[in-house]
Amino acid sequence: MINLSWQAPASLAIILFALGLIGLITRRNLIFVILSIEVMLNAVALLFIVAGMRWGHPDGQVMFIFILNLAGGELALGLVLLLRLRARITTLDGDSANILRES
């Protein structure tokens, strides 16, 4: 008998999300920043699966697919921007990408 309730997996999703958020706020390396966004999206996708499990509807998995969709698109654009910016930001240090600021 399975007695898994929805709270435990939902909490797992929230914890993963929080980890992603921490990574996003603390890391300087832009590769890690983008990785952190992927972690967050992945965590949210898991949350939708949990919702689908709780209510027994396929919407959760549909949203999961759309989130994968978004994650892929965002990743592609993010990485190509990194490639383009490589010339300027030699160490991929996010903090050094600050031409645009209040002088």
């Binding site: 958020l21 706020i25 890391r27 996010g94 903090d95 990408a97 600050n98 600021r101 209040e102």
Partner: peptide, 17 residues
């Protein structure tokens, strides 16, 4: 307020959070 517009992504993300 101007000082908040520091231009650093990480800081912006922190403020957003």
């Amino acid at each position: 307020l101007r000082r908040s517009q520091i231009g650093q992504l990480r800081r912006y993300a922190g403020m957003l959070a």
